[in-house]
Computed example of a mutant assay.
Amino acid sequence: MRESLRRLASEEDCERGASAGGMRRVRVELLDGEFINVDLHRKAKGSDLLDKVCQSLDLVEGDYFGLLHQQRGDPRVWVDLNRRLSKTFRNEPWDVRLAVKFYPPEPSELQDDGTRYQLSLAVRRDLMEGRLRCSDITYAVLASYIAQAELGDLTTTPLTAATLTDLRAAPPRVLTAALCEDIDQLYRRHQGQTPAQAELNYLENAKKIPLYGAELHCAKDSEDVDIVLAVCANGISVYRDGVQMNRFPWAKITKISYNKRLYTLKLRPSEFEPFETQLAFKLPATRACKKLWKCSVEHHIFFRRESVVGVCRVAGLPAFGTRRVSCRRTLRQLRANTTQPVSAAA
């Protein structure tokens, strides 16, 4: 009986593969929590999947976005856009999450309302999942703009914690009675704002949060103290116990490298230091160190370079663990021609 069932399942898989013509189905979780299915050829790359997702959402500025998947217990691994999906996902199902990879430092400069809306959803998700934290005053301001964008000019009933939770306006743990009252009072001051205006005001306040758009990586400093390295549009910051200890703008960094678990930054000489400074941080594993290095290089390329540059391998060393970055256009290229197809600009 088992052999018959196994043979029947095998025949059904063959028929399914033949009828699909080598197609694979990818389930994509969108930023609003909804799911869509995308059918792609088995030889398609990550960029093909991202393009199809952006097309389904009518996103013009798709270069800000990326796709996350889970790998070896890490839920935040970016899909390599230059690699075939069949090599990224060894087994089915192929599940990914749409996310903002490069948070624009000035949301008002976005050309597309759809991109601005997706960015606001990403910030809301960061707040709900605890990757982004702020004061109660900021929570109240942000939640009031979300209520205006989602509900419009409703003045009959006061906002409750249940309503704000359904809107994903703020994490449930912070929605005290006092905070809900503050949110309701601020919300009534926004009467007359369109959803687009409310979303822009939301982002203009969200960009002031210290860790807005930052990718966080746990590490240890030279004294073996636990720290967090935050990579964002402006550079790399060092946090200890939630307090910013140091900040290195991209203009000050001359070299980013890693060797096994050691992540190294080389800094330009300052006014009081005649020589270059080299800082080393220890990551928990080689995979985590490479992930931090790749994140740093991609952010530097996107926000600082005029065009995408390749990362060359050191001559004479083996090519184990290729140092390939996944960035198709820089911010300058994106701003120069928003409507130009990615394939023509890459």
Rank of each mutant, 00 (worst) to 15 (best):
S237V: 00
G46P: 08
P284K: 01
E15F: 13
R173L: 05
R240H: 03
A170F: 13
K291W: 02
L262K: 12
R84W: 05
T157Y: 15
E106C: 07
D153K: 07
L262R: 08
L132S: 09
N246L: 02
Y202N: 00
E106M: 06
I209T: 10
D226H: 11
E204F: 06
S135N: 04
V308F: 14
L151T: 01
S270Q: 15
S222H: 04
R324W: 10
K207I: 06
E150P: 02
Y212Q: 12
L167E: 02
P274E: 15
A177R: 12
T322C: 10
F89K: 11
C295L: 12
V225P: 00
Q111D: 09
V243L: 11
T160Q: 12
I137A: 12
L85R: 08
V309F: 09
E298N: 03
R188E: 09
S144R: 02
D80R: 12
V243R: 13
D39N: 11
L154H: 09
R27V: 03
L151N: 02
A196S: 13
T157S: 12
G17R: 12
E199F: 14
K290G: 01
L81E: 11
P104G: 05
M1E: 05
K282R: 05
L292Y: 06
T194V: 01
A9E: 11
Q278H: 13
A122I: 00
P171M: 06
S296F: 03
W250Q: 00
N201L: 07
V225W: 00
N246W: 03
A344V: 11
L334N: 01
L67W: 03
P158C: 09
L119I: 05
T176F: 00
L127C: 15
L317I: 09
Q118A: 00
L81D: 07
L98R: 10
S307C: 08
